[in-house]
Design a protein around this nucleic acid. Sequence first.
DNA 1: ATGTCGCGTCGTACGCGA
Length: 260
Amino acid sequence: MKIATFNINGIKARAQALPDWLDAFQPDVVLLQEIKSVDEGFPRELFEERGYNVEVHGQKSFNGVGILSKLPLEDVTRGLPGDDTDEQARWIEATVVGEREALRICGLYLPNGNPVPGLKYDYKLAWMARMQKRAEALLAEEMPFLMAGDYNIIPQSEDAARPDAWREDALFRMESREAYRRILNLGLTEAFRARDPRPGQYSFWDYQAGAWNRNDGIRIDHFLMSAAVADMMTDAGIDRDVRGLEKPSDHVPVWVELAA
DNA sequence: ATGTCGCGTCGTACGCGA
C-alpha cells in the first residue's frame, strides 16, 4: 500500500497537476494539505472518477485538509481535539481498512508559527501539545497509526540547504524542534529518515528567489508511524521531480510503502 | 533576502430577463 502526503497549495490551482500526479504515481492513499477550499468547492469528482474515496475538512481561503483513498475510509473525524474554539481546518483522521490490517491515518497541516514571538507562534506550540496528546491517546488504544502531513518543522540542520537562515524561524528554532521531538520520542518512527540518511533531501522550495533552481529547500513534510506501522514499512521517499513540472505546488509528495 | 503564488474582493465585461 502506497500512502503519500502532499501539500498542494490550493486545489483549484492544482486541478491539473494533482490528477496528473495521481495517474503517474498511483498512490492508494493521499493526505492533502492546504486545499484552500470549503468542502462544497472541492472538486471531488476529479478523484472519484479515478476510484478514490474522498473526505475533506475544508475552510474558506486558507488551510484545509483531505484524504483520498482507494480503500474504504471509516470513522472519519475532523479537527484536532483539545480546543473547541479552534476554527482552523488542519486535521483529519480516518481508519483505512486494508486486507489484513486496519490503520488509523491522521492528516495534518501544522501551523507555520511565524512571526516569532507572537500569537501565531503561541498557537503553533499549543497545537503541537494537542497533537502530542492525540498521539498519546492513540498509543494508549494500541491502535496502529500514522500521522503525516506538512509539519512546518525542519527536524535537523541537514534538512535545510541554509540552516543558518532558519535558525530563529518558527520552523527551525529549538523550541519548535523540541516540541516535535517530544512527539517522536513517544516511540514513533519518522519514515523518510529511517530509510534514507542522506542530507539535502527536501520537500519544499519557496516560489521566490529561484529557490528551486538553486536547490534552496527544506524538509518539512513528514510521516510519523507507530511501531506496528513502522514494522510494515518497506520503502519511503520524496517525489522531488514533481517540483519541476508545470504549475507546481511549492511542496512535493512524500510517501511510504507499507506491506499491508 | 527575495527573482512568487493563490485567494477573495472588487471592478469590468457580458449574458440574461424584463
